[in-house]
Design a binder for these strands. Structure first.
Lengths: 273, 273
DNA sequence: GAGTGGATTTCGCAT
DNA sequence: ATGCGAAGTCCACTC
């Protein structure tokens, strides 16, 4: 048995994850492109191209140098040198046709429902990479601050037994309260949520909100800071200002959100308890 | 003066749009990556990597083979071999740091407001492309069917003078009416919109809707087919069924939508008149 | 700078 | 299959 690192490298050598051409002739490029698309490989083409799209809408992209990616599932991305979003694209499930006509590489990607067509024309190809990629790595995303808020609203006992949210993001002067409610003794509770160890700023903000609410209602008002932890020295400040701290791990919130939110909030740390 | 095709190729040769390395050692790859990011070039890295994200939320991506793109504007895309969307990303405006530590290429992309960090680690690089891309090609998108609908609603005179929409996408049995309203003589008008030359199916659908509406109201009901053109032989069918046709170019609709829609609906055919 | 609405949204889950 | 809501949405525009 070889060490996994070594065996992995051998595997990569035998699989040959990459076939690349630099500045190929159009017909050579077309050949590699056709092969890659036929074998459902991922494919990168860099070159000077123009694009016609027709389907739900229509668009035309004049010539320029771009990065075009074809994926194993039949999706297409045309990326300009700037911007997060592709300028043209096609969702997964496309059928392709490839032609080399009068020194122009033409690739058409079509799909049904809705019926859409993207045609890409290259008159200059700088690089073609046909890729045989293996990607089984798990992706896990855990709770955002907003997720923690939803978690508390959907299960108020996360904060404390008997807590009942009244409204959330209540507007006060200079901001919004994350969560706002009443505890089991009838006192108002103002909650400030942080998904990271809370610093001084979070505490001061909470104090400000508590003060604002106190000026509006004639009842006792508690201020509770919810975060996975507090930064060093902040605990003292919390006590000094008459506030409270409740530890809550954002990963735990992720597990609580079992309704539609489950989709992206998967078990990340199984050792969370 | 050289022909533009030739001069363009000379320009490409002198500019050197591509520096590529296949299966480089990690430190060599790091060198090219650092250079490309420093010079604000676009950059493609294909290899085995894992990713940590922390910011609005947090995520972890276990090792696998992916395509990673860095763009001139400081945006980052991590693409798995399938799917339209990047699994991890960073919007434009990032700052980068590159390190090669114990045979691992580490790239960090951070941005402020919101404060976010994406860390990408490669232990195996199959391909690195540093790109010097020139892309000034105009992108134009013109109206979708929905845009045409909005255009008519925002300027009913596109259909005819005196037309007043009542509601749109009115539900009838087996479908929705695109636009529904009253003409200047008080008759009901049912509008069916197509962004391409209308075929028999569109006409028959409109006829069905007209029939459905007639069974619901005690008033005259007109059926108007709106499209840039009608397919061959369909005009007869329209007349036979007692319907009407109104020619409307989707490109014209695009120009009508001058409110927020302007952003993507630019003048595409200046010779539209 | 914050807030609002659209997108060739995409994506995932519900019915 | 269709519809609904969320997204690390992104993006452009308004106040």
């Amino acid at each position: 048995m070889l060490p996994s690192k070594i065996s992995g490298e051998l595997e990569v050598l035998s699989r040959n994850p990459l076939i690349a051409m630099q500045n190929p002739a159009i017909d050579k490029a077309a050949q590699l492109v056709r092969e890659a698309l036929t074998e459902r490989k991922a494919l990168i083409i860099v070159g000077n191209c123009w694009v016609d799209y027709s389907g739900r809408a229509s668009s035309k992209l004049e010539p320029g140098e771009r990065i075009v990616i074809f994926k194993e599932d039949g999706s297409v991305l045309v990326h300009r040198p700037t911007g997060y979003e592709p300028v043209n694209w096609q969702p997964p499930g496309c059928l392709f046709s490839v032609r080399a006509v009068s020194n122009t590489l033409q690739i058409r990607a079509i799909r049904r429902k809705p019926s859409e067509s993207v045609k890409i024309f290259f008159d200059n190809v700088y690089e073609v990479c046909a890729l045989n990629l293996v990607d089984n790595g798990a992706f896990s995303l855990y709770a955002s601050e907003e997720d923690m808020q939803r978690a508390i609203l959907s299960r108020p006992s996360l904060l404390e037994d008997g807590f009942e949210p009244i409204t959330y993001e209540k507007k006060v002067e200079s901001g919004f309260v994350d969560v706002y409610g009443v505890d089991k003794t009838g006192k108002f509770v103002v909650v400030e949520i942080k998904r990271k160890p809370a610093g001084r700023a979070a505490v001061l903000q909470l104090a400000k909100y508590v003060k604002a609410i106190r000026s509006m209602v004639n009842r006792e008002v508690r201020g509770v800071l919810v975060a996975p932890d507090v930064a060093k020295g902040v605990q003292r400040l919390i006590v000094t200002l008459g506030l409270e701290f409740k530890a809550l791990d954002p990963r735990k919130c992720a597990l609580v959100l079992t309704k539609p939110e489950t989709k992206r909030l998967v078990d990340f740390f199984e050792d969370t308890g």
